[in-house]
Design a protein around this nucleic acid. Structure first.
Lengths: 165, 165
DNA sequence: ATATTTAACTTGCGAAATGCAAGTGATATT
DNA sequence: AATATCACTTGCATTTCGCAAGTTAAATAT
């Protein structure tokens, strides 16, 4: 509800502005989940592997919505659930995510197979086109399977804890 | 001196790893200063417009060095000063910065002239090649002039304050 | 019809990061 | 010899983060 508007920018530099909106450890990860994995619900983000806390997740979803990067609407089939979706402004982050992917794949030890990365790098345009198609057609099948399936077993409010009382 | 090694990764996803290293409001801005403006000294980063606090700047420079993104060496001509320089891993962030630049230029109100942006988008490869050449040859002339020259007049430890006593 | 789950949050709280102003020490300049 | 500059560091108040637990409404099971 609180449509908090940005108080002021520290400069007019586009890079600086990007970082004011997206410069934290979680925002782009949520965008990744929506973009390449087809995630749409709070629950899916929560269990996507990196173990984001629920309060932080709620906060980031609000901020991304306020920034015009995603929208929310109640799920048609389940009154409890909501569906988050990238806006055109949100899906336009695809090239940024792709370059971050390539950079880390080359310079850090990641779970991404080199061969797979090389293939994507040679077909950059096709990968982006397919990403865009999936978004346009609301195709929720994952573009890329999650690397390293069981990365962080511990999750806040683990369903394992079976509500003691 | 404290070469602090990353304790552990939250997942093997390259995007996630990128964000663990670069996911804050300042790190990529320092990389931008080095890459496109040719900045090399603490002082230049400090006065680059966005008003980073000196303790944060020192911290980020250490972390970027620890991550292998930049190196430091004492300045040849001035014993007080140090020169920071991007490593190959650091200059490889050029495509990421470029995409962040394009994204904000299209979707936010920035100080970047549309015409200028359009030209860069059409010559992406050339822009990257020139960026790389400048780095390789240690050419410090700015690739892009700072947008919005006088953005944030207030700076920590402003030199205006003329050391009262 | 009632009890139990489930989805999506919110709240409380200690720990860590951030931002600001001032201070320090080693050069360099006047 | 005195002063200015560079690259930090320190102290401290404020903000954000991360974790665990609690809440509300809607769906499902009994």
């Amino acid at each position: 509800m609180a449509g908090k508007l940005q108080p002021q920018r520290r400069s007019g530099c586009p890079v600086s502005i990007s970082l004011e909106i997206l410069g934290d450890r979680w925002s782009l990860l949520i965008v990744r989940d929506m973009m390449v994995r087809g995630y749409r619900t709070f629950r899916e983000f929560q269990h996507s592997g990196e173990g984001i806390a629920t309060n932080i997740l709620a906060d980031r979803l609000h901020k991304l919505e306020a920034a015009g990067i995603l929208t929310v609407e109640p799920a048609a089939d389940d009154g409890r659930s909501a569906h988050y979706r990238l806006t055109p402004k949100g899906i336009a982050l695809a090239p940024v995510l792709l370059e971050l992917l390539f950079w880390a794949a080359h310079h850090e030890e990641t779970a991404a197979p080199c061969e797979f990365i090389a293939q994507m790098e040679q077909n950059r345009a096709a990968v982006l086109a397919e990403t865009y198609r999936r978004w346009e057609q609301r195709d929720p099948t994952p573009l890329i399977p999650p690397f390293s399936p069981r990365a962080n077993p511990k999750t806040t409010n683990s369903p394992k804890g079976k509500a003691k009382r």
